[in-house]
């Protein structure tokens, strides 16, 4: 058994084996990436990243749905009662605690993504126990600040990046 314990010096075959294996592994990884990355949002999709919305014609109490990056964004002109309800909620009651002030720039304008944080359906406005939104897919309920109150959704409706260009104009994105 002495031969088995002898350590042979690496020969040319060992070198070729390792070198081929290393180049092969790098090659597979380099070739796999283009095939994975081709599925990511393409340049034309990324180019549509911001829109301007004229909010001057939205009366108090109405929700307008605008399309941003292929999906809905709710622009809600809140009534005094809705603002009050949104502001008077104890943070301890919330699943995803956020004050109303953290979610709006001007109290009368609530701008949130229209994608239910559960599985992506579009919730229906002025519905549900809290009269914010009700998702018809799995019954999630949001309040007048777009915060999750009941149902399976884990998070509040997302607030997109936006900026008031004037009193009647908002740039989303």
């Amino acid at each position: 058994m002495a031969a088995a314990t002898t350590i042979e010096a690496p020969n040319r075959r060992d070198f070729l084996f390792l070198a081929t294996g290393a180049v092969g592994a790098v090659g597979v990884a380099a070739l796999a990436w283009p095939f994975i990355d081709q599925m990511n949002p393409d340049a034309s999709t990324l180019a549509l990243s911001s829109i301007e919305v004229d909010i001057g014609a939205i009366p108090v109490g109405q929700i307008v749905t605008v399309k941003w990056r292929g999906g809905p964004v709710f622009v809600r002109h809140r009534t005094a009662k809705e603002i009050e309800e949104a502001q008077n909620v104890q943070l301890s009651e919330l699943r995803d605690p956020q004050t109303d002030a953290q979610r709006v720039q001007k109290p009368e304008w609530l701008i949130v993504s229209g994608i239910c944080t559960h599985l992506g359906c579009v919730p229906i406005g002025h519905e549900g126990k809290y009269e914010g939104w009700f998702c018809p897919c799995h019954g999630s309920m949001y309040d007048t600040s777009g915060r999750i109150r009941q149902g399976p959704a884990p998070l509040n409706l997302a607030v997109p990046e936006y900026k008031f260009l004037s009193d009647t104009k908002v740039k989303i994105g």
Binding site: M39, P41, T45, R69, G70, G71, I115
Partner: peptide, 10 residues
């Protein structure tokens, strides 16, 4: 987003 090829189904 990778599955959709965008920010929503499209």
């Amino acid at each position: 987003h990778w599955l959709w090829g965008g920010f929503a189904i499209g």
